[in-house]
Simulated assay, not measured.
Amino acid sequence: MRVAAYERYGPPEVVAVSERPEPVPGEGQVRVRVHAAVVGSSDSAARSGTPWFARLAFGLRAPKRHVLGSEFAGVVDAVGPGVTRFAVGDRAFGATGIDLGAHAEHVLVAESGAVVRLPDEVGMADAAAICDGALTALPFLRDAGHVRPGDRVLVNGASGSVGAAAVQLAKHLGAEVTAVCGPTHVELIGRLGADRVIDYTREDFTQARGEYDVIFDAVGKSTFRRCRRALLAGGSFLTTVPSWAIMFQQLTSKLGSRRAVIMFTGLRKDAEKLPDLEELGTLAAAGGLRPPIERVLPLEQIAAGHRIVDCGHKGGSVVVTMAPAEHRAGPSRPAASGRMTEPAS
Rank of each mutant, 00 (worst) to 15 (best):
A4L: 08
A5E: 12
E13Y: 07
V15C: 11
V15F: 05
A16K: 15
E19A: 15
P21S: 11
V24I: 15
P25W: 04
R33Y: 07
V38Q: 03
G40I: 01
S44G: 13
G49Q: 07
T50R: 12
P51Q: 00
W52R: 03
R55L: 07
G59V: 09
A62V: 11
P63H: 04
H66N: 09
H66T: 11
D77P: 08
D77T: 07
A78G: 08
A87T: 15
A87H: 09
V88Q: 06
I98E: 11
D99W: 08
G101P: 05
A102M: 05
H103E: 11
E105Y: 07
V115M: 14
V116M: 05
E121D: 13
G123C: 03
G123R: 00
A125F: 03
A127T: 05
A128W: 01
A129E: 02
R142G: 07
G150S: 04
N156I: 11
G157V: 02
G160N: 04
V162N: 04
A165M: 03
L169P: 00
K171D: 08
H172R: 12
A179H: 04
P183I: 09
G190V: 08
L192E: 06
T201S: 15
D204K: 15
Q207V: 14
A208D: 12
R209G: 10
D213K: 06
V214T: 11
I215L: 13
I215D: 03
F216T: 07
D217T: 02
T223H: 02
F224M: 00
R225T: 10
R226I: 02
C227I: 00
C227L: 00
R229L: 09
A233S: 13
T239R: 01
L251G: 00
T252V: 10
L255Q: 07
R259W: 02
A260L: 00
D270T: 13
E279R: 15
A285T: 14
A286Y: 09
I293F: 08
V296C: 12
I302S: 09
A303R: 10
R307A: 15
D310T: 14
C311V: 15
G312W: 10
G315T: 10
G316D: 08
M322S: 11
A325P: 08
A325E: 15
H327R: 14
G338R: 05
M340N: 10
T341K: 09
